[in-house]
Write a protein that binds this DNA or RNA. Structure first.
Length: 475
RNA sequence: GUCCCCAUCGUCUAGCCUGGUCCAGGACGACGGCCUUUCACGCCGUUAACAGGGGUUCAAAUCCCCUUGGGGACGCCA
């Protein structure tokens, strides 16, 4: 049997870190067993669901490369289907009409709470055999709902893929609403109908859904359908161990893209949050597919650690090709400032990347570090303090003497030759490298921190290198 | 309040099911060192945990119970 998993977000906002991790686990579960992964948009709440959110979620999943099979299922387009099953439940006596108002139900809950019991609907309409259209006893024009007629004793049990055997007393459950007073089906009903209709065999979802699972199982049984396997992954916490929220920083997956993270870094980070394979930390997508199993999913909540994400991102930046990074960079350069006058030639950019790859933790940092390479000499910004500290008279004199040496050098592509020439000059005068290193660096880059001097000169090329030294000398 | 779940270094985790090989392993971080033309990279090292208490057992991080702490659910939201 080939398995089917799904990710079922409700389009009320962007795709957040927690949702992305659940989606990733579901995707991995399917792929690891040669199964199918599908997407369903849970937009039964017409008030809060938006097209923008739907698009944003799909965009984020695409960025993470979590492709879903077939076209997405939209619950808002399937109300007739849901209603037909509610009618069936009504006809078979597994559901009933309830005329209680929200206020009345709230009063019941209050009462139960006050008595130290679990707040729930008391089932007063359960055996009334109410028929809408047959005239309402209280004369109220509308507002009836349909409730599930759940068992009042016994136990509903299931074997959770991550938590293991789980059981709930049916008495803990109240008769959930299946159809709202406006005729719209509710979440629990729609989920069951869709998962069955879509052939879903394994449901992996957030911890916050455990309480829904027994209710849904009861629905499957009432409808006479096979019950899928369920797995509930623990949630992600902020550094203060409270549920991860906006105040902890970026929550949206796409926000991480903006912050300069590579999708494979986020995926690798997220997968290790709650899942492990021995001591391994770095996983390629192929390894993940081959190694993933719900058996290795942890069952305690985990804290989101930005430092580790940064480490992984730095790793993937090093692993990346210069060409890919070069293509990604302009977006970040533009985000940080003007692109005017910058040399954004792809080949030039690609030449810079290897110098920055070991140094940048994010693409944002990389764009910042790349800037001095891209500015024409005339527009280069020299750091005042760096100039004051490093370009003192003696230093300038040395640079002036070095200039002809660099002028006569022909092959800037060979940075070791540049270095050898510099060393020879220094040896002649019995000077240490330190005597020229920082002054030269400031002259070339405007700053005191940069990639290796001669690699930098090699990338800048002869004309730019000479122009920069001359400009520095004139400062 | 009621019900459910969780509990190993600061953090992610391995180990727990199938007690002894664990005075608990890896990784991130932090700290120190090496390398070095700056900044990084890299390399080496240090730091640091079985929540507490009872059992069971020759032996418990591993099994059982209680306590504490944390989280979740209790919607005509999903």
């Amino acid at each position: 049997m080939t398995i089917v998993t799904r990710f079922a977000p409700s389009p009320t906002g962007y795709l957040h870190i927690g949702g992305a991790r659940t989606a990733l686990f579901s995707w991995l579960l399917a792929k690891s067993q040669g199964g199918t992964f599908r997407l369903r948009v849970e937009d039964t709440d017409r008030e809060r669901s938006t097209k923008e959110a739907t698009d944003a979620i799909i965009e984020a999943m695409a960025w993470l490369d979590l492709a879903a099979e077939g076209s997405a299922v939209f619950q808002s387009e399937r109300f007739d289907l849901y209603n037909s099953f509610i009618d069936q439940l009504l006809a078979t006596g597994r559901a009933y009409w309830c005329r209680c108002t929200p206020d009345e139900v709230e009063a019941m809950r209050e009462k139960a709470r006050a008595e130290g019991r679990k707040p729930k609907y008391d089932g007063r309409c359960r055996e009334l055999g109410l028929e809408p259209g047959a005239g309402r006893p209280d004369g109220r024009p509308d507002g009836w709902v349909v409730r599930f007629k759940g068992p009042q004793d016994g136990v509903t049990a299931f074997d959770d893929m991550v938590k293991g055997p789980t059981a709930v007393q049916n008495a803990e459950l109240d008769d959930m609403i299946l159809r709202r007073s406006d005729g719209a089906p509710t979440y629990n009903l729609a989920v069951v109908v869709d998962d069955h209709a879509m052939g879903v065999t394994h449901v992996l979802r957030g911890d916050d859904h455990v309480a829904n699972t027994p209710r849904q199982i009861l629905l499957y049984q009432a409808l006479g359908w096979d019950v899928p396997r369920f797995g509930h992954v623990p949630m992600i916490l902020g550094p203060d161990k409270a549920k991860l929220s906006k105040r902890h920083g970026a929550l949206s997956v796409m926000e991480y893209k903006k912050l300069g993270y590579l999708p494979e870094a986020l995926v690798n980070y997220l997968v290790r949050l709650g899942w492990s394979h021995g001591d391994q930390e770095i996983f390629s997508r192929e390894e993940l597919i081959r190694l993933f199993s719900t058996d290795n999913l942890g069952n305690s909540p985990s804290v989101f650690d930005l430092k580790k994400l940064e480490w992984l991102n730095a790793h993937y930046i090093k692993e990346s090709t210069p060409q890919r990074l070069a293509a990604l960079l302009p977006e970040f350069l533009g985000e940080a400032g003007s692109l005017d006058g910058l040399n954004l030639d792809p080949a030039y950019l690609a030449g810079i990347m290897p110098l920055l790859q070991p140094r940048a933790k994010t693409l944002v940092e990389m764009a910042d570090m790349a800037r001095f390479f891209l500015l024409p000499t005339a527009a280069l910004v020299y750091d005042d303090k760096a100039v004051a500290d490093q370009l003192k008279p003696e230093a300038r004199a040395l640079l002036a003497e070095l200039l002809p040496i660099y002028e006569s050098a022909t092959d800037y592509g060979d940075h070791t030759a540049l270095e050898a020439a510099t060393q020879a000059f220094l040896d002649e005068r019995g000077l240490k490298f330190k005597a020229v290193a920082q002054p030269l660096r400031v002259a070339l880059t405007g700053k005191t921190a940069s990639p290796g001097l001669f690699e930098t000169m090699g990338v800048l090329g002869k004309n730019e290198s000479l122009a920069r030294i001359k400009r520095a000398l004139a400062l």
